[in-house]
Amino acid sequence: MAQVTAASHGEHEATTTGLNHRKMLMWAFLGSDCMFFGSLIATYLVYKGKSKAGPFPEDVFSIPVTSVSTFVLLMSSMSMVLAYAALTRGNMKAFRIWLASTVIMGATFLAFQTFEFYEFANHEVVVECNDPDAADWTDLQAKVGSACGSFVAGEETEVTIGEYTVKVFEEDGHAVAETTAGLTPRTNLFGTTFFTLTGFHGAHVTLGVIWLLSLFFFSFRKGGVTPKRNLDVDLAALYWHFVDVVWIVIFTVVYLFGVFQGF
């Protein structure tokens, strides 16, 4: 990061295009990273709907929760660009505040993702046996609901249906069937491709958080981050926004399209 200043002590090196070497490298890297995520997304789509066993996307996704984490990541992009703008204006205090909030929002997104992974891995399916909307059940819910036939009032019974062990018991006077249908990378093709794709995106976010955090702490050292050397922040910001646009694609392609079968 410090190489920019250092070289300025040497002779002035003009570049052929007038563009900065490091910024050009960053853009070439982002173009290359498009191919990386493109291949992962292609793998996900090729295998979409090809899983032999559940749980499927419609069983585990919670769009409202993911919408919130998507919103947080989008806002972190805004905060990042405001941090950069503050730095170029020379307002170090505002720069640090916006940068810190970017880091916090990035960490929040990661917390959401951790929660989501944990939730999926321990996913519980609970159905009420006399649910009036039983017609809208997913296949997995219907499978669990099919255990309701062995309901004995006041008792808890266990039934094995396919790969699931379903508990049927009484709760508040209703018959309820419940099972754990966890999704891990080994469960099915959906789990394999979903965790790999979102996991690598999460790894990119983690790297970004570390990078931004380093800049934040470094900005307290004299001459660490200065308005003149805003390129150090500019490059981190480009990376951060790229991670954001990748998530825009993942949110649509993986989550919102998740409900379509055979697609």
Partner: peptide, 17 residues
């Protein structure tokens, strides 16, 4: 040039996908 570099990767990724 920066747009070109980024869009090249993006478009190729889309085409391959």
């Amino acid at each position: 040039l920066f747009s070109t570099m980024f869009v090249a990767g993006l478009v190729l990724a889309l085409l391959v996908a």
